[in-house]
Design a protein around this nucleic acid. Structure first.
Lengths: 287, 287
DNA sequence: AGGCATTTGTAACAATAATTTCAGAAACGC
DNA sequence: GCGTTTCTGAAATTATTGTTACAAATGCCT
């Protein structure tokens, strides 16, 4: 429960808008290991945040303190109040919300999903998948269903920067055959199929398999029928206190995959990202 | 050097019998309001204990520290260990992979992001946001940037089922003004703007604000400039061991929001979902 | 592109903290 | 009670912290 007086953390939150770049950097460092980092000397704090000591002083004053020592005193007072009250321990995700609040319930569910998913996931399969996606001789095609469309889009957006020859199949399944036409043997097709499974995706997988395309499937714990055509399959826990399933763990897996692939072919990716930067710069000029 | 596992409190207790009168007085003051008193300056600590500063130094050295600052560092380290959330310290996520594997490193980062984000997030703001999105008198508009486009899409897909009058602004910012034209005062505009912040989104926010549209902003820990036009702002931690930022926590927040909104207007949503089912059935017939 | 405002760090300075020295006070033994 | 040892704090000294002034850098707006 929030105390009557504002905590330093609250004050930082409230005034975050009026903070400058360096000050925000500092504010984040402060909040990161709250409040321990703020109890060090101004010099150490500035070092930790990678800003200068005057920045610390200026922010303290901006936040309404006379200087850094006064801010630090406030931190100590807070700490004292917190510690003397052992019930307020950190066993909740959002301390400010009751543990029945949807935020806390959802957080519990997501962590549970993550544990279970990772525990039964085979790192070898993960690594094999990354190797496939990093293989530049193979084109990569990505497709999702009604809900998973956004996930497919996310993977596509990133892969597209990392390497060449990546395509995103459009939502409209009528024209998917046109895309299959362009798939070469050895190509990779990433399919997202979470319940309720979509017949169109099954048909697509069949077609692709017939063209000797390697299929990677992201599905839920019950397993989409696409699995029978897939070379690699990830069963992700998706339960959530909601009428819908959670895509958080799926996104997590995607991001980890993206990170692994980019590391594998960093030489290529680095060049592409640099090139992309210059393209952005040019676009700016046009404006 | 004291053992890593022993706390300063332990050390004091172990050595209490070799302490002198003034030192014992000091030790008791230290333990009385542990560890806050010990985190002040040596002068204040001495004052509190009614001893001289040299006594403090001598005791620190007697206890095996090189001086007072070293003792204080030990206190801070302890505090850090005590305070850090036990939920975050999961030894290994995927037992089958080494803890240096990207899966485990990424999981650590994501959980850390989640913990930090939730700790700083105001449940009131969260609830207020949900109330806005659940208010059927207001139309809802959703827009994302280059990377966050997929997130906007995800939110849109779900909101669209939950309630009527939801639109997703297209990626092409040229025609955004056309959409602003359709926004009525009181409408809600959800903006995703993660670094690097996009100028077009700032312009859009300005335009929308001028039309009395309420803006909800999802941004990162550094804060998009859109914040100045936004009514509600969520600063999400996005750091990941990758060349890109992580969207996992953002997605988590979205899903929790979706769950909350759907609960709020379940009467409406339930009917819409049922209707949707029958529509799907009909589509099937067409095939 | 260039002028203006804002932001940021370097460096000098002031303030405070931490340590050391030393002399007086307390405790102890005989 | 007196010498010896141990303890303690005042004061001096040194080290470090915290603040201020200023100039370079950055970003923004014609």
């Amino acid at each position: 429960m929030p105390t009557a007086t504002k905590t330093v953390s609250d004050i930082i939150q409230d005034n975050f808008n009026i903070l400058t770049r360096a000050e925000r950097q500092l504010a984040n460092t402060l909040l990161e290991n709250y409040p321990v980092t703020g109890l060090k000397s101004i010099t150490r704090l500035a070092e930790n945040a990678d800003v200068s000591t005057p920045t610390v002083v200026r922010m303290a004053q901006k936040l309404g303190f006379s200087g850094f020592p006064e801010l630090q005193n406030a931190l100590r007072d807070e700490l004292e109040a917190t510690i003397s009250n052992p019930i307020a321990k950190h066993d909740q995700w959002s301390e400010h919300a009751p543990d029945t609040h949807i935020l806390n319930r959802f957080a519990d569910a997501v962590i549970d999903n993550m544990r279970q998913t990772l525990n039964q996931l085979s790192p070898d399969e993960f690594d094999a998948t990354c190797a496939l996606l990093a293989d530049r001789k193979r084109s990569v095609h990505v497709v999702g269903g009604r809900i998973t469309h956004a996930l497919a889009d996310y993977l596509f957006t990133h892969l597209q920067v990392i390497r060449e020859n990546v395509t995103h199949l459009p939502p409209n399944s009528n024209i998917w055959p046109h895309y299959v036409l362009n798939m070469k043997p050895g190509d990779v097709l990433v399919i997202f199929d979470i319940r309720r499974y979509e017949q169109d995706l099954i048909n697509l997988a069949d077609m692709a398999k017939a063209s000797d395309v390697t299929i990677i499937l992201y599905t839920d714990q019950w397993g989409s029928p696409v699995a029978k055509s897939a070379k690699h399959r990830f069963n992700i826990r998706i339960e959530a206190p909601s009428a819908w399933d959670s895509s958080v763990v799926t996104l997590f897996l995607l991001e980890a995959t993206i990170a692994a692939v980019e590391t594998k072919i960093w030489g290529v990716t680095k060049g592409r990202m640099k090139h992309l930067e210059t393209l952005f710069d040019k676009t700016k000029l046009f404006r």
